[in-house]
Amino acid sequence: MSDMRQLYQEVILDHNRKPRNFGSILAANRHAEGHNPLCGDHIKLTMNVSDNKIETIAFEGEGCAICKASASMMTGAVKGKLVQDAEIMIEEFRGMATGTLDPDGQDNHLGRLKVFVGVKDLPSRVKCAILPWHTLHAALNPALNPTQAEPSISTEGEADPVSDHA
């Protein structure tokens, strides 16, 4: 049970119960959808970017606690940030979740997002935590999905969904 308390920390449970920035922005100029078909996680991100800065951001969808809390905390963390800084956080979050970045040993900008470090020991849950970040990456880079009007991401069958864009 203690391992589980490590993963399902109060912060995560709280964001799951009361997700922040939940909903959608009507006049959004960036948006993307992410799916994890394995567990039915589904995230829709909408945001406004101007002068290279994320002015507003919101998410909606269905997901497990890890995915919802990750999306909720992500929106809080990147709101008001420059796009390039958000991209750095995407990389760092992905590194932490897949175990290549030690958030306590290496420099990073993750701050409170460190509560997700526990997912690295649960391969089946890494995708849940990363999905919102992967979706954010797609929303910030519409050129990555030139054939789709609506950038859409799937994490089916990939341990590390972001890397195929790297």
């Binding site: 391992d3 589980m4 606690a65 890890i66 849950r125």
Partner: peptide, 13 residues
């Protein structure tokens, strides 16, 4: 109030 995926992870423990 609990997503099945979380149920599975906690039971696995």
């Amino acid at each position: 109030g609990v997503h099945p995926h979380d149920v599975g992870t906690i039971l696995n423990d």
